[in-house]
């Protein structure tokens, strides 16, 4: 009896100290995440400007949508915003899709035993380690319309007949962004897939090999279903990252309307045009879109887990 009283007292003391240990982290997190988010949402209902951020008036939903003298105004009525939404979603789908396929190929290669495997893994870490801005500039130079090495190589092999203005022309600019992003983030995808591959039991592969089943069939029937949960996590992580893309687009295509993502659009309103209220409204919409996606994926994931008998 005395023993258990002492242990509950000990537990209580530990819980108290746990909260004490958590407090500094929670204060910092509230300061840098919670409070700024609340203020951003708050600003989206005001007409604040960057030069006089404390001097504002409430204007309701006017930053989002307003009908005034026969015309619609606000972020939701701005074709540039919808262009940015389309660009962001197109970029996310294409780049994450390509990264998934290429990452899978790299991961399967790395999963095989061959001399120099460690060196290959080191080599694919290099793109990941290079700062985004640096990769944007490096590729900006390689994709240069007059002196770029990519045009030179493609023209040597007669794949193209005249230089392409990769980052300047609206038709190719978003593809250029995708190309750089795929180059930079495929290693991350490959490492995540590799980690999942290495956790697979080897006995079913032995059995399949003994039975002489085609490796391609084994991949689609055995490997893919087994690593699907890990793939989903990797895809969700990458997609959430891709949806908030800013720096690559900002540097590679220099703030052009044709390639602006939602983040680029919001920052442009906020900083370049000084419209804190309007920019905050766009930021709030981006936040809502991402939050909605997270909730939906969590719900779908939970439903799946519930159905799964394992």
């Amino acid at each position: 009896m005395a023993m258990s009283a002492k242990s509950t007292e000990l537990t209580r003391a530990r819980v108290r100290s746990a909260w004490l240990f958590l407090t500094p982290m929670l204060i910092v997190l509230a300061l840098v995440a919670g409070w700024p988010l609340i203020r951003t949402i708050f600003f989206s209902f005001t007409d604040a400007r960057l030069s006089s951020i404390s001097d504002y008036e409430f204007i309701g939903f006017a930053n989002f949508l307003e009908y005034y003298e026969g015309e619609w105004y606000g972020v939701i009525a701005d074709p540039d915003w919808w262009r940015a939404v389309y660009n962001t979603i197109w970029f996310t789908v294409v780049s994450v899709g390509l990264e998934l396929v290429l990452g899978m190929i790299v991961a399967l290669t790395l999963n095989a035993a061959f001399p120099g495997r460690g060196m290959l893994r080191a080599a694919i870490l290099i793109p990941w380690a290079i700062p985004t801005i640096v990769s944007a500039q490096m590729w900006g130079w390689m994709l240069h319309d007059q002196f770029g090495v990519l045009n030179e190589i493609l023209m040597t092999f007669r794949i193209i007949s005249e230089p392409v203005a990769w980052t300047a022309s609206p038709d190719t600019a978003l593809w250029a962004v995708v190309m750089v992003d795929v180059w930079k983030t495929t290693p991350f995808m490959a490492l995540l897939i590799l980690a999942a591959l290495q956790m697979l039991p080897s006995d079913c592969y032995e059995a399949a090999r003994v039975d002489g089943i085609n490796p391609v069939k084994v991949f689609f029937k055995v490997t893919l279903p087994l690593i699907r949960p890990a793939l989903m996590v990797a895809i969700i992580f990458r997609a959430l990252d891709a949806l908030r893309i800013f720096d690559l687009i900002y540097v590679l295509t220099s703030n052009s309307r044709d390639t602006a993502s939602m983040s680029v659009y919001a920052r442009q309103q906020l900083v370049d045009f000084q419209e804190v209220g309007y920019g905050s409204a766009a930021s709030t919409l981006l936040f809502l879109i991402i939050a909605l996606l997270v909730v939906v994926t969590l719900m779908v994931g939970r439903v799946r887990l519930g159905e799964d008998p394992r």
Binding site: L29, P36, L240, A266, F287
Partner: peptide
């Protein structure tokens, strides 16, 4: 804590600027 890591940076930009 996990959901904070999914915040888009731009969503806290104006609040952070004020701070």
């Amino acid at each position: 804590i996990l959901s904070v890591s999914m915040f888009p940076q731009v969503a806290v930009l104006s609040g952070m600027f004020e701070l």
